[in-house]
Write a protein that binds this DNA or RNA. Structure first.
Lengths: 249, 249
DNA sequence: CGGAGCGTTGAGCAACGTCAAAAGACGTGG
DNA sequence: CCACGTCTTTTGACGTTGCTCAACGCTCCG
C-alpha cells in the first residue's frame, strides 16, 4: 500500500470506489463534513465492539477489517473488509452501537464525519440519505456473499473467490485494472477472512500458483490468468453492485 | 406454523417482531400502504435473483429464506432467514435488483408495499426512513453473525447457535418465550443455513438431544435447557438489536 | 397397499485442522 | 557489512471433522 500513490489527497475531487455511487453534487455536499483525517498503524483497533459511536469513518487509504474476536488467545474472524473509498462503519449512524471490532490491517488514513452533522445534512437531502442507505446495503450484499462463500465453497474455490473480490474492489478503488496489485494482507488475514487456518491457506495459495492462476509474493498479488481465477473461484461480480458497468483496461 | 394463531390479522395493531423498532405513530403511517396480502405454499420461489423489483414484502406469517442457488441439482445455500414481522426484501427498495432468490419454507402470508408509495412516504418522513434503514442494518448485522457462525464454529456449536437464534427471533415475533415452539424447518433447511450436510445435521441434533439441551421432533422445537443450549452455542443476542430489552416470561 | 419425502445409521474417505520444526523476509543495532 | 530477533511462510506427519454413498425405517397421503 505504501508504494502506491496516496488516494484522496484533494477532497474536492470525487474519488472512485464505493463513493462513486454519489453524484458530483452529492459528493460536494458531503466532502466538507469529512474532517479530522487520522492515521492508523497496522494492527490498531480503531473502535471496539459495543462502543457507542457518535461519528463514522470514510477509509481514504489502506485496508480495514471488521473483526469478531473469539476466545482469549485464539485468532479472530473477519466478517468484512473495507477498501479505500468505502465507509467503514456507516451502519453505526442508525445503529449507534457496533457488534464487532474495527481493526486497521495496514497503514491507513481515514476521514471522520460526526453523526450530528450527518443527521442535519440528511434531513435536508432525502436523495443523499437514500444513497448512503444504498451504500450500507451493498455492504450487506457482500456479507451475504461471504456467508455463501465460507459456507458452500471448498478451500481452493474459496480463496480464489476471495482474491477475485479483492481484485475487483481494488480495481474499483483505484480506477484501473492491473495485472499486479499491491497486496498487504498476510496469509493469516486471508485465513481469518475465509474461515481456514493459515497453514491451509498457504497450501491453497501454492495450488493456485501451480494452476497458473495467480501468485502472492512480497506484498504483491500477481494475476497471471484472471479468467482462470474467476473460473476456479466461480466469481460473478454482480453482488458488488459496482457503480459503473464500464470496461476498464 | 399452521397450529399457531395467525399473526397480523388486524393491521391497525402494531405487531411485535422487527417492526417493533417503529413507534405506534410510524406504524400507523406505514400500515395502510401494506396492501395486497398474498399467500405462498412451502417451496415457492417468491422472487428470483436478478429480478427488478418495484415492491417489497413484509412477512406476516411463516418463514422465508433468502437463498443462493448453486449448480443445477445441488442444494442451495441460505444466506438469511426471515421471521414474521420482518421485511423480506426491503433492501430491494434502494438496490432495485436482488442478488439472491426469495423462497417460502412454510405456508406464508405476506403484505406488499410498492416502492413508489414508499418513496413518497419516506420523502415526507425522515425519521421513518431512518427506521427502515435501521431495520435493513439489523439484517446486515445478522448476516455478519452468520459469516462468523459458519466460518468459525464447529458443527455442534453452529447448530446450537442457529437454534438459539431461531428461538430468539420467534420469541420476538410472537412476543412470548416458550419451552416448546413450532419448528417447521426440515433438517435439510438447517443444513442449507449452517453450511453442513443434512446427514451431519441429523447426527448433530442427536448429540444436542443427548446433551439434554433440546430436541427437534414433529414440527416442534423443545428447549429442555435454554442456558445449556446458549452455552453450547456460545449465544449472545446483542447482534439481533432487539427493540425492547425487557424480560419476557 | 404403494409411493414419496424425510430422518437415521453405518462404513469408508477426503478435506482440513493441529502440532512442530525450519526456512525465509525484514528491520535494528553493532 | 554482519548478527540478531521477530514475524511470516513453508513443509511434514498425523489426527479429526464432516462429507459421500448407500441402505433402511418412518410417516403421511393418495
Amino acid at each position: 500500500m505504501t508504494t502506491e500513490q496516496p488516494l484522496y489527497h484533494d477532497m474536492t475531487v470525487k474519488p472512485s470506489g464505493m463513493v462513486d455511487h454519489l453524484s458530483d453534487a452529492q459528493w460536494a455536499k458531503l466532502a466538507p463534513l469529512l474532517v479530522q483525517h487520522k492515521h492508523y498503524a497496522p494492527g490498531n483497533v480503531v473502535s471496539r465492539r459495543g462502543d457507542l459511536l457518535n461519528h463514522s469513518l470514510l477509509l481514504l487509504d489502506g485496508l480495514i477489517a471488521r473483526s469478531v474476536p473469539r476466545g482469549q488467545r485464539a485468532r479472530s474472524t473477519f466478517v468484512a473488509l473495507q477498501f479505500p473509498g468505502e465507509f467503514v462503519d456507516l451502519h453505526a449512524f442508525p445503529l449507534k452501537r457496533l457488534d464487532h471490532d474495527v481493526v486497521s490491517l495496514t497503514d491507513t488514513r481515514v476521514a471522520t464525519v460526526s453523526h450530528d452533522t450527518l443527521h442535519e445534512l440528511l434531513n435536508g437531502d432525502v436523495e443523499l440519505a437514500r444513497k448512503l442507505w444504498l451504500m450500507t446495503l451493498v455492504d450487506a450484499s457482500i456479507h451475504r456473499h461471504w456467508v455463501m462463500r465460507n459456507s458452500a465453497m471448498r478451500a481452493l474455490a474459496r480463496v480464489a473467490n476471495f482474491l477475485c473480490e479483492f481484485d475487483a474492489r481494488m480495481t474499483a478503488a483505484y480506477g484501473v485494472e492491473r495485472q499486479s496489485l499491491p497486496f498487504s494482507l498476510r496469509q493469516t488475514d486471508i485465513a481469518d477472512a475465509t474461515g481456514l487456518t493459515s497453514v491451509h491457506v498457504s497450501r491453497t495459495l501454492r495450488e493456485l500458483r501451480e494452476h497458473g492462476c495467480c501468485s502472492v509474493t512480497g506484498g504483491k498479488l500477481l494475476i497471471h490468468d484472471r479468467n482462470g481465477l474467476h473460473k476456479v473461484g466461480m466469481f460473478e461480480a454482480a453482488y458488488l453492485y459496482m457503480p459503473e458497468p464500464e470496461a476498464v483496461i
